[in-house]
Design a protein around this nucleic acid. Structure first.
Length: 898
RNA sequence: GGGUGGUUAGCUCAGCUGGUUAGAGCGCCGGUCUCACAUACCGGAGGUCACAGGUUCGAGUCCUGUACCGCCCACCA
């Protein structure tokens, strides 16, 4: 007799999630628990920007990490998920600069010290926002170990690393053309200057010869840089160049004379074969300039406006930027110069040109190549140990397809520009004596020059943000101190991140790990996909196609969000979400949570306070359905575990979903209802099986949908007080419960029920009508099963009576795959023609299949070459189908069908 | 230019080492408020697995090529 349900029929995630999360944290459930035989399992979070706001990319990435950490925690590992934030130099400075701009000021108005204080103030007030948001999606990080890349201890690590590299000659001052962002006013690394395809214009410009009347024509996308040209080059083998090499040409606009030189770097196929050389504003031209000892005048200033700005002028000291162009933005100057060229008849022609333009990854400004002095790290010595370790299989990348990309970058690694002309970040610990010019890197701020005791000044620049993030796997654990955490939790295990920071971060962490600790930082790199909209566009704020994960949490619950992200996309694949239809996108997860809620409402109403234990039941009281669902549970555990071990989170989620909803709720619960109402050993057996399987389902599903499962697990009777599902052991796969016979027999029962339901639907039998039916079993075994399950079939197919003794009935027919025959009595309702059509369609389909199969089995090659078990399986199938076919054919004959 | 991924039902995707009648969710059609759940239940329709070759007894699955979409890298200005 079911008790009244004291839970509402709808699950309200908003009412329970916050309290559950509080319980987990209060009980210290996220902290790693050391113990005998417990191996650590460590994930370090990719630290979000301290100014960041949670977006779907974070949602995906962190849900994956949470699933993995909860799985390993349940498996008994000493699981640590270490959280924290990144100071994100440029990004954070930009945010605060914008705030300051609202007050009508620039950072220069405030001055360095006041501005940095302002950033700190901002970070202190808003810096934990994104971590709080992570809590809302259920992230089970050990918050007691939260780190920030500008923490004092972390800063010591960064400084130690810098000085260490300096002492080994791996940091040097490079004088070359680097990427410069004229808006952020800083240098950028190669990785920070991203290529964007652009449709530009290729301008063909005449450079008149100084002597005589001819000219050479160059092609360029950047006419404004001609002010800084110091040569024209042509390939030495290019016959077009021969008459001009060694001659001098006159720059348009300024009239400055420059030489025509030969250089092999020129591509003869492109443009006119003549290339203008602007050594101070183009990395290639810089190389050419070096080879030929050219002057390298800077003609674009740091802010992107035109102007003489020094450079390596050598003997060439004439002003290069005319007064009417000085101070103009480079793109304005381009237009003006083009007009002037046209006016002077020096613009030969223009054509549209597809090319790639580098833009600042933080503000999207077009980057200006610029001759400059910066600090660089020599990367090759750091890369080599990582490559060697890669080839020893010490770590791996999933999905594997990223290996080629990773290797290509590592094998062609370039030195890393680490200095940034910013104020927010780790100040570069390089000091210079203003008296004797001695320069050194120091772990402590020196009071005076160690050489001459003269006054010292520190390098004004800060380090690239990534110069601190690359230490994340060990600096967060206390390195360079030999802390217990460092000993215990390094190396870590799984790193989950987006592929776009494979070079920025992942590769460099590997290099730092091997260089400074001699060991890998993690064993597996899991590269996630990208979250996109239905048009496959990356979700971004600027496109306005983003979905706020917190909106989803509010509308559908954190589990719904997690479900869609995990079950919706496979390993490393992009996840497509529809920002215009949140309902459709997230309903599956919400519906599933609600389903679990209602399964629980039912089960809880069936279970007494002292839940019968499975092992206390007499095995003879187990029904076919009991044996079947226990067998399915065993399979679910095995398959879900295997899938998670292979990082197939989607597969695990779907398998558990099928177990809970498709197998447990749709079939087992339905078969068990009448037994549960009784008070006898069979009822107790059903209760024990139900409780057991439900417990397994909740444990299996917990990593993906932690809130609803914890909430429902708390309601299960018979647990020790205070136990938490998050800390409950992962279910063991007990092979003793595997039962292929039960699988097959229950499958036959399901088929019989479905066949009868099918007939009812086709003949539009009202659901309330109870019909008579008969089954003629195909054999003795089938008879035994169907007779034993008589009551189940009767109830689930809504029958009045069910005969299994071959009683003749008039009605609608179906033949099951084993040849068992089903007849549903439909006295007046039967339309013989319709019946003939239904059955003959079945027969035709079967004949088609049988024909294919017979051909296959008649093929000597197949029988000889296919594995014996495959052949045997096909023979068995043929046997079954023949039986089914014969029964169908006989039935058609009996009905008098043509 | 090099590398790499995708193309399976109207939509979003599974389909792992080639071997049952290619699956799921959503949507759609028909029927049900059946005492856990209408965010549900029952039944159903819907796919020449992008295209063309090839390997094989057998190909959605392996190979080659083509087309389209995407991502990464790259010093043709």
């Amino acid at each position: 007799m079911p008790r009244p349900f004291d839970l509402p029929p709808q699950y309200d995630p908003g009412a329970v999630e916050a309290a559950l999360y509080r319980t987990w944290t209060e009980r210290g459930a996220f902290a790693p628990v050391p113990g005998p035989g417990r191996e650590p399992y460590v994930i370090v979070i990719p630290p979000p920007n301290v100014t960041g706001v949670l977006h779907m990319g974070h949602g995906l990435n962190n849900t994956i990490q949470d699933v993995l950490i909860r799985f390993e925690r349940a498996r008994g590992r000493e699981a640590l998920w270490l959280p924290g934030t990144d100071h994100a130099g440029i990004a954070t400075q930009n945010v605060v600069e914008r705030l300051v701009a609202k007050e009508g000021k620039t950072r220069f108005d405030l001055g360095r010290e006041a501005f940095v204080a302002r950033v700190w103030e901002f970070v202190r007030t808003t810096g934990s926002t994104i971590l709080e948001q992570l809590k809302q999606i259920g992230a089970s990080c050990d918050w007691s170990r939260t780190r920030f890349t500008l923490d004092p201890a972390y800063t010591r690590a960064v400084r130690e690393v810098f000085v260490h590299l300096w002492e080994r000659g791996l940091i040097y001052r490079g004088h070359r053309v680097i990427h410069w962002c004229p808006r952020c006013l800083t240098a950028l690394s190669d990785e920070e200057a991203e290529f964007h395809d652009a449709s530009g214009t290729l301008y063909y410009i005449h450079y008149p010869l100084v002597e005589g009347s001819g000219y050479v024509t160059v092609a360029t996308t950047r006419p404004e840089t001609l002010l800084g040209d110091t040569a024209v080059v042509v390939h030495p083998d290019d016959p077009r160049g021969a008459p001009f090499i060694g001659k001098r040409v006159r720059l348009p606009i300024t009239g400055i004379e420059i030489p025509v030189l030969a250089d092999e770097a020129v591509d003869k196929e492109f443009g006119t074969g003549f290339v203008k050389v602007t050594p101070a504003h183009d990395a290639n031209d810089f190389e050419i300039g070096l080879r030929h000892g050219l002057a390298m005048p800077l003609v674009i200033r740091e802010d992107g406006t035109m102007g003489d700005d020094g450079g390596d002028r050598k003997g060439d000291t004439a002003p290069r930027v005319p007064a009417d162009l000085a101070g103009l933005d480079r793109f304005e100057a381009r237009k003006k110069i083009v007009r002037q060229l046209e006016a002077q008849g020096l613009l030969a022609r223009t054509e549209t040109h597809q090319h790639a333009v580098r833009r600042c990854y933080r503000c999207n400004s077009v980057v200006e190549p610029r001759l400059s002095d910066q600090w660089f790290v020599r990367m090759q010595p750091l890369a080599e140990p990582v490559l060697a370790a890669y080839h020893r299989d010490e770590f791996r990348i999933v999905p594997e397809r990223w290996n080629a990309t990773f290797l290509n970058w590592m094998e062609n690694i370039r030195d890393w520009n680490i200095s940034r002309q910013l104020w927010w970040g780790h100040r570069i610990p390089v000091f210079t004596c203003t008296r004797c010019r001695h320069q050194w890197a120091d772990r402590e701020d020196p009071a005076a020059c160690p050489e001459c005791a003269g006054p010292v000044e520190q390098d004004p620049d800060v380090l690239d943000t990534w110069f601190s993030s690359w230490l994340w796997p060990f600096a967060t654990l206390g390195w360079p101190e030999e802390t217990p955490d460092l000993r215990r939790y390094y190396p870590g295990h799984t790193l989950v991140t987006a592929p776009e920071i494979l070079f920025f971060w992942v590769a460099r962490m590997l290099m730092a790990g091997y260089h400074f600790l001699g060991k890998k930082p993690f064993s597996t790199v899991y590269l996630t996909g990208t979250v996109r909209d239905t048009q496959h566009r990356r979700m971004s704020k600027s496109l306005g196609n983003g979905i706020d994960p917190l909106d989803v949490v509010r509308l559908f619950g954190a589990d719904a969000l997690r479900w869609t992200l995990i079950a919706g996309g496979s390993l490393g694949a992009d996840v497509m979400l529809d920002p215009n239809d949140l309902e459709t996108t997230f309903a599956p997860g919400r519906n599933f949570a609600n389903k679990l809620w209602n399964i629980a409402r039912f089960i809880l109403a069936q279970l007494p306070a002292d839940v019968p234990r499975l092992e206390d039941q007499d095995p003879r009281t187990f029904t076919l359905a009991d044996r079947w669902i226990l067998s399915r549970a065993q399979r679910a555990v095995t398959e879900a575990t295997a899938a998670l071990e292979q990082f197939r989170l989607d597969e695990a989620a779907r398998r558990c979903f099928e177990f809970a909803w498709g197998e447990l709720a749709d079939w087992y619960v339905e078969t068990a209802k009448p037994r549960l109402a009784a008070d006898d050993p069979s009822a107790r057996a059903a209760q024990a099986v139900l409780a057991h399987c439900w417990d397994i389902a909740l444990r299996l599903l917990h990593p993906v949908v932690p809130f609803i499962t914890e909430e429902l697990w708390q309601k299960l009777p018979g647990r020790r007080a205070g136990e938490l599902l998050i800390l409950a052991p992962w279910p063991a796969s007990d092979p003793a419960w595997a039962n292929p016979d039960a699988d097959a027999q229950f499958g036959a029962v399901q088929q019989a029920i479905t066949a009868i339901r099918n007939i009812r639907a086709e003949y539009r039998v009202p659901p309330k009508a109870r019909l008579a039916a008969a089954i003629r079993p195909a054999g003795r075994a089938a008879r035994a099963t169907l007779e034993a399950e008589h009551d189940t079939i009767l109830r689930l197919a809504q029958l009045e009576s069910l005969a299994t003794d071959g009683e003749a009935l008039t009605g609608a027919h179906a033949v099951l795959t084993d040849g068992s025959e089903v007849v549903v009595a439909l006295a007046g309702a039967i339309d013989v023609a319709q019946e003939c059509r239904r059955l003959s369609e079945d027969l035709q389909r079967l004949d088609r299949q049988l024909e294919g199969l017979t051909t296959k089995l008649a093929n000597e090659n197949f029988v000889a070459r296919a594995p014996a078990e495959v052949v045997a399986r096909e023979r068995e199938k043929q046997e079954t189908w023949r039986t089914q076919r014969d029964v169908l054919a006989a039935k058609l004959g009996a009905l008098g069908c043509s």
